[in-house]
Structures are given as structure tokens and as C-alpha cells.
Design a protein around this nucleic acid. Structure first.
Lengths: 145, 145
DNA sequence: TATTGTTATACTCTATAACTATA
DNA sequence: TATAGTTATAGAGTATAACAATA
């Protein structure tokens, strides 16, 4: 944990800061909110979830998630289900329109990302692709299922 | 542009989607908005900017940037300057409190990121560090100065 | 007349506090 | 009494449309 690590850390933070800005700008003009997209992704990946679990996972309050689910439900992107074993619980599930939205969103973002990648050198492309497994494991640590 | 590229692209999009979520969760509890942080970063990097240029760069409307600058000014994170050569222009500059905020924010995010990195294998850490120059060039393409 | 920025208004998204329903 | 979720209210953040000031 010497001097080198500090320089390394600063470099990492600045590079990820810039990358984050780029990824944020991949959003479509009429895109849903970041929390909405992340919530749909969670529901797609993990199946129906309790409203309170969703709130905790996405880092928003329960009332905020109540409202978000209401909006997503209004647009038919998610469905509410009841828990037979506990009448207080609301289970939220992704609907087919929600899956379709995610598919379109990824396709659009993939197009834009591919355009950027295509402008890089083959060596840079390779370095990025080679880092993906490591980045996936970093994500595993950062957002535990 | 064969089959392999399509698989590659899908992989990239999903990995970056997850990474984006992780980076988003590095935000502090009492953090400023993503646009506010990005705007401060731009001002730190590029020096005083016109309000309209800032709006275009951050992908928000002119009225939205007017309000954001008003909030940042209220918290003494930025200062307004006049352009001697054109009375219509508002130049926005980062203030010392703004630089301090960025420094603290990066330190906090760096701590969290370092914590995640420390849990990875040395090989994964190396793969990520090795990809940073390529990611920087990707960012250069995605958010031209 | 064109450009730069602000004001007016409305909607989304979020938080905290108070409430309802179920356990 | 504790837990799951909703409602009430307020503020941040954003957009479009209309406006004011300067070029």
C-alpha cells in the first residue's frame, strides 16, 4: 500500500469518472430514468421482488419506489402481484413490454458503443474486451445479487 | 462484422450496464446531482464556460443550466463572470469550494473503488488497470473537449 | 433580426413525516 | 407492537414556451 497505489487509485477514479459520463450520455432522448432502468433490469435478472427489497437495492426510499412502481405500472412495464403468505407484501414483476423496452434500450446503446469502439485501435479494443471479465467480477462485488 | 461482433457487442453492453450501476452507487448519501458533478468537472477541466456551452455539453436545456448554475452559485461552488466583449454572455467559473467538493467526492469514491478492487484477484486488477488507457481514449471519443 | 440568457409553468423524481393495513 | 406499503407535502431537476437584453 505504498505511493504507487495512491497514484493508481487516483488514475482509476478519474478514468471511471470519465467513463461514467460517457455511459450516461448513451441515454436516449426519451429514455426512462436511471432508477427506472436499473429497477427493470433487476426485475428481469432476479424475478419478482418485494417493493421494499427493490427500494433498498436501488438505493431509494420506500415511498420513492412506490411511486416509481406506480409509474412503471401505468406504462405497463411492470405488474403487481400479491404474496399469498403475507397480505402486506407487494411483489413487483417485469411485464413483457418492460422486457421489450430493455431489449430496445440495449440495442440502441450497443449501436452507440459499437460506433465508439470502431474508432479505437484494435489494440485498445482488445484491452477493453480483455478487461470485461474482471469488470464483471468488480460489478459482482459492487452490486451483490 | 460477423456473428462474433454481435456477441461481442452484447457482452460489452451488458458489462458496461452493470459497471454503470456500480459506479452510480458510489454516490455519497448527500451527493450533488450527476449533472451538477459533471458540470463542476467540466469547469475544473476546461476553465470558465458560457452558460449555453455548458448546457450543450451536459445535454440539458439552457433554462435547466440557468437554474443549475443558480443553485451552484447559491452554494458558492461556482461564480458568474461577465464577458467584456459581449454583454449577453454569462461566463461560469468553478469556485474554490467547488474544487474542494470535487476533491472530497473523488477521495470518497476512490476509497470505495479501492475497497472493491482489493477484493479482486491480482490478475483482475491488472486487467482493469491495463485497460484504463484504452478506456480513456474511448472517453475522448464519447465526450470531446 | 439573431443570439444569449431568464422567467413562467408544468411534470418527474426524490425525501421526510404521518398514515393504513396486516402480522 | 412491528412490518409493509401508501399518502401528504415539499424541494430538486428537467422541459417547453414566452420574454428581455444585447449584438
Amino acid at each position: 500500500m505504498g505511493e504507487w497505489d495512491q497514484i493508481d487509485r487516483a488514475r482509476l477514479v478519474l478514468s471511471f469518472e470519465r467513463l461514467f459520463a460517457v455511459l450516461r450520455r448513451l441515454n436516449l432522448p426519451q429514455d426512462i430514468s436511471l432508477t427506472a432502468a436499473s429497477t427493470l433490469r433487476t426485475l428481469e435478472l432476479c424475478g419478482p421482488q418485494r417493493l421494499s427489497d427493490l427500494a433498498a437495492r436501488e438505493g431509494v426510499t420506500q415511498p420513492a419506489m412506490t411511486q416509481l412502481v406506480a409509474r412503471l405500472e401505468r406504462e405497463h412495464l411492470v405488474e403487481r402481484q400479491t404474496d399469498p403468505s403475507d397480505g402486506r407484501v407487494v411483489l413487483v414483476a417485469i411485464a413483457s413490454a418492460g422486457r421489450e423496452l430493455l431489449r430496445h434500450r440495449r440495442a440502441a446503446r450497443g449501436e452507440k458503443l459499437a460506433g465508439l469502439l470502431a474508432a479505437l485501435s484494435p489494440e485498445d479494443r482488445s484491452a477493453i474486451m480483455a478487461a470485461l471479465p474482471a469488470l464483471d467480477r468488480l460489478s459482482d462485488l459492487g452490486s451483490p445479487s
